[in-house]
């Protein structure tokens, strides 16, 4: 679904690259955590998928398409296939819950009848039944984030990108949000979530990709927030290196 091939992103010449020859594949229907300190390249990773930025070198494939080959007038089509959720919710304060979700459908020209049919369905999925008429400021943080998730998935994207969606929420509310994201993932949506929240990662036990200084230093299935493999440098070589080195690394561990 998402494939990075030797992707490097340099924002400023001479500065350390935000992403440094990252190669990674995320399959359809997978749930992936992107962890790492601030400035490790998580946001850049997400921005490259959305074609908000252009890779300095290497290729980014989304749904089998090299995003570099997507012309600017077709970028909206790419983005319709990707839902995005942020830490700060980004709801429209003067629109109620229904209108906030409907907005995402209106702007891509969905008919009124389809909107009226779909929005309540999606609000039910995220657990906001009966709150259609509320204004954003009348909702708790967790509820606001649910509205944002509903808006992100209302057009049924194949991919959902979440940039620290629980960053502003308390642990219990966060678990609720994770439940929603998990449900969306169960319905077949590929979810990529950048996070600092170790409790959540440890609880969910999904694939974890750890970035450090723009490099992938760990990529484990059903993993914890912190590595269980003691030698971090070795594990990176596991991912990047040729078969011979891989064998040697495995041998060293045994």
């Amino acid at each position: 679904m998402i494939r990075f091939e030797n992707v490097t992103k340099v924002y400023e010449q001479n500065a350390r690259p935000a992403l440094d020859s990252v190669s990674l594949e995320i399959n359809r229907g997978e749930f992936t955590f992107l962890v790492g300190a601030s400035g490790s390249g998580k946001s850049t990773f997400l921005r490259l998928i959305l074609k908000e930025d252009k890779a300095s070198s290497g290729s980014v494939y989304v749904a089998g398409q090299n995003v570099a080959n997507i012309s600017s007038w077709r970028v909206p089509k790419l983005r319709r296939g990707i839902g995005v959720v942020f830490q700060d919710f980004r709801l429209l304060p003067q629109k109620n819950v229904f209108a906030n979700v409907a907005f995402a459908m209106q702007v891509i020209g969905k008919s009124r009848s389809i909107i009226r049919e779909t929005v309540p369905e999606v609000l039910k999925t995220v657990g906001l039944e009966g709150k259609e008429k509320r204004m954003p400021h009348e909702l708790s943080g967790g509820e606001q984030q649910r509205v944002a998730i509903a808006r992100a998935v209302v057009n049924r994207p194949g991919i959902l990108l979440a940039d620290e969606p629980t960053g502003n929420l308390d642990p219990i509310t966060s678990m609720g949000i994770m439940g929603v994201l998990d449900k969306i993932n169960q319905n077949g949506t590929t979810v990529v979530m950048a996070t600092h929240d170790d409790d959540i990662v440890n609880e969910m036990r999904r694939r974890v990709v750890e970035l450090k200084n723009g490099k992938v230093i760990r990529d484990e299935a059903k993993a914890l927030y912190t590595s269980m493999i003691p030698v971090v440098g070795e594990s990176r070589r596991l991912k990047d290196a040729s078969g011979e080195e891989l064998n040697r690394a495995q041998g060293a561990q045994l």
């Binding site: 007038w73 983005r79 702007v107 020209g109």
Partner: peptide
């Protein structure tokens, strides 16, 4: 800018924005 930001993210065309 809030609205246009969201419009961009959900894939509204340049014309609509």
């Amino acid at each position: 800018r809030r609205e246009t930001g969201i419009m961009r993210l959900v894939g509204a065309s340049k014309t609509v924005i």
